[in-house]
């Protein structure tokens, strides 16, 4: 069968650059970085423990694990990495972090708390799971309420954990209607937490129709949004930044 100009394979038009790992401070830290960037879950624990024989845990975290995740983020942003490579690197990074925390005897102080949930009636929580993974890999504490979460439970969790940011995921328009109910309840109680909503049929128009709402177009926006929320940026300013 001959091929006429019925379609254009734009995906083949641009060959992307090879990945390049930013150099670590020494060989041991480089091994940690390479393991995270390459998603080497089988060996990360061994490499981290090797690095911990020489370096302070905070150095391994800062100069190895975090630096490697920065590199992964760059590779994803540039389209060299796909989502699975990023998720596996995140899993690897968290396994390494756990080793460092064991050595320290306590958990690393997190950047802030984010409560995440999938709307009542909705069992499609894959988007939320991706958001959770990206937030954790970027140093945030995630309170994962799971899927099909009633409005009351979300409101109560916000009161209990006092998060810097709340997220909601929904696939269907008939389940996303829980979001404005949550926002109204929170506002009524004087809680001004930025409430990032996204997924499936959730639209900018809908999310910006109620107070607190900020539309999240893609999962990878979650870490920078959480950073803004932790820094005290209000929901109105966040909406202006991400939704206008």
């Amino acid at each position: 069968m001959a091929t006429a100009e019925v379609f254009v394979r734009y995906d083949l038009k641009k060959e992307l650059a090879e990945k390049k790992v930013a150099a670590g401070k020494d060989e041991l830290l480089q091994k940690v970085m390479d393991a995270v960037v390459n998603g080497d879950e089988d060996n990360i624990v061994a490499y981290v423990n090797e690095a911990l024989t020489v370096h302070d845990p905070l150095v391994v975290i800062r100069e190895g694990l975090v630096k490697a995740m920065d590199e992964v983020s760059r590779l994803w942003d540039e389209g060299i990495y796909y989502l699975p490579q990023t998720i596996i690197s995140s899993d690897t990074m968290l396994a390494g972090l756990e080793e460092c925390e064991k050595k320290m005897g306590h958990a690393v102080e997190k950047k802030g708390v984010v409560v995440t949930h999938t709307a009542e009636g909705d069992i499609h929580d894959l988007g939320q799971q991706i958001v959770n993974a990206l937030l954790r890999a970027n140093g945030f504490e995630v309170i994962d309420l799971g899927k099909d979460v009633p409005v009351d439970d979300v409101v109560n969790a916000v009161k209990q954990y006092k998060p810097a940011m709340l997220t909601g995921t929904a696939l269907m328009t008939t389940t996303m209607t829980a979001f404005n109910k949550i926002a109204n309840r929170l506002r009524r109680d004087g809680i001004e937490v930025p409430f990032v909503c996204g997924g499936g049929a959730v639209s900018l128009e809908y999310v910006t129709s109620f107070d607190l709402g900020i539309w999240g177009k893609e999962a990878q926006q979650a870490p920078p949004m959480a950073s803004d929320a932790v820094a005290g940026v209000s929901w109105t300013k966040m909406r202006e930044k991400y939704n206008s």
């Binding site: 699975p84 596996i88 069992i123």
Partner: peptide
Amino acid sequence: SVGGKEISDYSIVRQD
């Protein structure tokens, strides 16, 4: 139907 989705969701995003 959704049987096995807990495993497939986990695996699809990890290219497993």
